[in-house]
């Protein structure tokens, strides 16, 4: 055994004897004081985490409630419109227009009448009044019609009017003091919304089965205000035919030109004496 080994053994003996000495330890009170000091010096992460979790959870619940309440309000506001605007089928949506043939010639005038009380009110009332107005006497509308009311003006104002507004949320009353202001209001808000509703709720299957031009024309019709102010192309053509038969050729030509402006793609019933050459 080397000297180093002997020293290690002797050192081990000293260590063993020292280990047998009383194991003095700090008092429990001192331990508590030191540990308390250590805890106080350090923020309790678990508590902070629990608080933050609690806070985020509450915030999440509150946000969910707010969103749910907003959606409920939105749905409550939109459902009546849908119910009113949505006819059971596309034919039903278009049919009333056929009963008011002359309104198509004077959209501005019709819009003026319907929108005069104010856009917000009129929209709701128009929807609810639609059956009565559609079933009303056509003659009265014809008498009120202004021949010089130009659809081209309507196109212009619609193009300048920008995107259609949301329906069922009248933010501010529309200016309805003049036909020029009432017309874009009609076309940009209520009519467009009615068109959207008509597209949504009309028979999609029947629409698919129709020719493309008729479909697009019908869609244009719906978009332009299918509810009540524009007559159907068929009715319009029938009226033109009637004018021709009455000898009112000039009026028939003007009306047909107007018709072509509005429905450039609408197929004519067939080449006949009543209608000028489409390529004219």
């Amino acid at each position: 055994m080397s000297e180093a080994d002997m020293n290690e053994k002797d050192d081990g003996e000293i260590s063993r004897i020292y280990a047998a000495t009383p194991r003095d330890e700090p008092s429990a009170a001192m331990d508590e004081a030191i540990l308390a000091s250590a805890h106080n010096a350090t923020p309790d992460k678990r508590a902070v985490h629990a608080n933050s979790f609690h806070w985020t959870r509450l915030a999440g619940i509150a946000a969910t409630l707010v969103i749910a309440a907003s959606l409920a309000v939105l749905m409550q506001d939109e459902q009546p419109d849908i119910a009113v605007l949505a006819p059971p089928s596309r034919d039903a949506a278009i049919a009333p227009m056929a009963k008011v043939p002359n309104e198509a010639l004077q959209p501005a005038e019709t819009a003026q009448q319907s929108m005069a009380p104010g856009r917000g009110d009129s929209r709701t009332r128009d929807r609810t009044d639609r059956p009565e107005r559609n079933s009303g006497p056509v003659q009265s509308d014809q008498q009120q019609a202004q021949p010089e009311a130009s659809p081209s003006r309507a196109d212009t104002t619609m193009a300048a009017g920008g995107a259609p507004e949301r329906r069922a949320f009248p933010v501010a009353p529309a200016p309805a003091s003049s036909p020029a202001s009432a017309e874009p209001a009609l076309q940009s808000s209520g009519v467009a919304a009615a068109g959207v509703a008509a597209r949504q709720y009309s028979g999609a299957t029947a629409e698919r089965s129709r020719p493309q031009s008729a479909e697009s024309t019908t869609r244009n019709l719906a978009d332009a205000g299918a509810s009540r102010s524009i007559e159907s192309p068929q009715a319009w053509l029938a009226r033109i035919e009637a004018l021709r038969k009455q000898g009112r050729i000039r009026e028939a030509d003007d009306s047909f030109a107007e018709f072509r402006k509005r429905y450039p793609d609408f197929p004519l019933p067939g080449p006949g004496p009543s209608f000028p050459n489409p390529d004219r």
Binding site: D31, L35, A38, T42, P43, K45
Partner: peptide
Amino acid sequence: AGDAAAFEQLY
């Protein structure tokens, strides 16, 4: 880093 339990073990 804020773990008071680690100090308890150390102590």
